[in-house]
Design a protein around this nucleic acid. Structure first.
Length: 412
RNA sequence: GCGGAAGUAGCUCAGUUGGUAGAGCAUCUGAUUGUGGCUCAGAGGGCCGAGAGUUCAAGUCUCUUCUUUCGCCCCA
């Protein structure tokens, strides 16, 4: 039996890779228009980095990471997300001392050992964008604006932006306490998962699919009632900036984040068209993260966007049409044809050739299937006259062109 | 970790109450000398996921196992 692909790891041939190439090139173009620069960080880091940034109690760290000991027995992990690695690189490079604000993005594979399903792979890809060095609400609004600009450039219009305020270490515990008290009073009505969440991660009860529509959930405490003045003002400025720029969003009191480091502004781009998953991109502010990792007390905000999930929303991309397909009818012509093809490509044209001399009929079939604009035919007749027959495959018209005019004719 | 569904030609799938396999698409060839797409004719290609069991006989029934997929959990 042949060797199989590892479950959750995908092979992407042209049909799929064209879509990814489109998403990648678009993000590079859009992000750089906002002054963001690409940073490439390793796919492996010491496990400790992820434990300290993402949170030791999260499932991502507890059971989803690919972790291996190095030669000295120190654990290292394939990255389950990109933010931690970028923060580590930012600290190591002392970027904060070189520029007051840093705008960084990275693109690449992430790894989580979960059960694969629609829109969820074990090796998946994210573009990750981080804006470091400012508390200003305008930064929050800009990064959200950037994310929406990006998906608009991709041609996606059917996404909804959900926003929430998660507060800070001063005000969040008060809300959390009020939430736990409320939920404990209604514990008997909670689903089994939520009974467990109530003790492990009570905020998660808010976005439970089963319990969301229950009657008592309609009166669940809302964070905006507990938020401190600073957090409240910050969030109000962010949302005002969005509204002034006609960026529509849904105030979603049930939006919470899976990773521990988020605070204040939190957002998610959602779609109902990608199976059981809804989040296409998610992000928020993480003001204490860099300090927690041993760096300076620098605030930050960012998001990650899941490319496999975006790809589910994008249609197929057509391949770029080739300029020519060279057909050689005999072995002598093949040698000349090879040289002509080489010269055409060096002149900047794109195309292919049949590798063996074959009959006219099957050669034309191959030419037609290649989708090229022109078929170049080289047989004994053309060889004798130092020409090539050029057939326009759309019009069906054919004319004989001398070799020195070939580039010019095909370029038209 | 827990559920549901599915594994038959390269792909998408049929296969009736058990009798050693079929279609469409794709590929290749041909329809009078060197001209594609449309049409027509033909060809190649399958240990029916694997292993046991029942039976004269298993793609079909039973069990085991592997794989894939959609959900739960969790997350982008």
């Amino acid at each position: 039996m042949s060797i199989k692909r590892i479950n959750g790891f995908a092979d992407m041939f042209a049909r799929d890779s064209r879509v990814f190439e489109f998403m990648e090139s678009t993000c590079r173009r859009v992000f750089s228009a906002y002054g963001f620069q690409e940073v490439r960080v390793p796919v492996m880091e010491y496990t400790q980095l992820f434990a300290r940034s993402i949170g030791t109690e999260t499932d991502v760290v507890q059971k989803e990471m690919y972790t291996f000991p190095d030669a000295h027995g120190v654990n290292q992990s394939l990255r389950p997300e990109a933010t931690a690695g970028i923060m580590r690189a930012y600290i190591n490079a002392s970027l904060h001392a070189k520029e007051s604000v840093s705008k960084l993005f990275t693109y690449g594979p992430m790894f989580r050992c979960e059960r694969p399903q629609k829109g969820r792979m074990r090796q998946f890809h994210q573009v990750d964008c981080e804006l470091l060095g400012t508390h200003a609400p305008a930064a929050d609004a800009e990064i959200i604006s950037l994310l929406l600009h990006y998906v608009t450039e991709l041609g996606l219009t059917d996404l909804s932006l959900h926003m929430n305020n998660l507060g800070c270490p001063t005000c969040r515990p008060k809300y959390r306490q009020a939430l736990v008290e409320y939920l404990t009073r209604h514990e008997e009505h909670l689903c089994d998962d939520c009974k467990r969440r109530l003790h492990t991660n009570p905020l998660r009860v808010l976005d439970c699919k089963k319990d969301h529509d229950l009657a008592f959930m309609q009166e669940v405490p809302v964070f905006l009632d507990y938020v401190c003045d600073d957090c409240k003002q910050h969030y109000e400025t962010v949302t005002a900036l969005l509204q002034e720029n006609n960026i529509a969003f849904v105030q979603d009191h049930c939006l919470v984040r899976g990773l521990d480091y988020y605070c204040r502004t939190t957002f998610e781009l959602q779609s109902s068209a990608i199976g059981a998953q809804t989040a296409v991109a998610g992000g928020g502010r993480y003001d204490g993260l860099i300090r927690n990792l041993g760096g300076p007390d620098i605030p930050g905000i960012g998001f990650a966007c899941g490319m496999e999930r975006l790809a589910l929303l994008l249609g197929e991309r057509e391949a770029q049409r080739k300029d020519f397909y060279m057909v050689c009818l005999d072995d002598t012509a093949l040698h000349t044809g090879f040289k002509i093809v080489r010269d055409l490509r060096l002149a900047g044209l794109s195309g292919e050739m049949g590798y063996t001399a074959a009959g006219m009929k099957s050669s034309m079939r191959q030419a037609g299937k290649s989708g090229a604009r022109y078929t170049l035919i080289l047989g004994s007749d053309e060889m004798a006259r130092q020409t090539v027959a050029v057939k326009d495959m759309d019009k069906g018209e054919q004319k004989e062109v001398s070799l020195d005019q070939l580039v010019q004719v095909i370029s038209q």
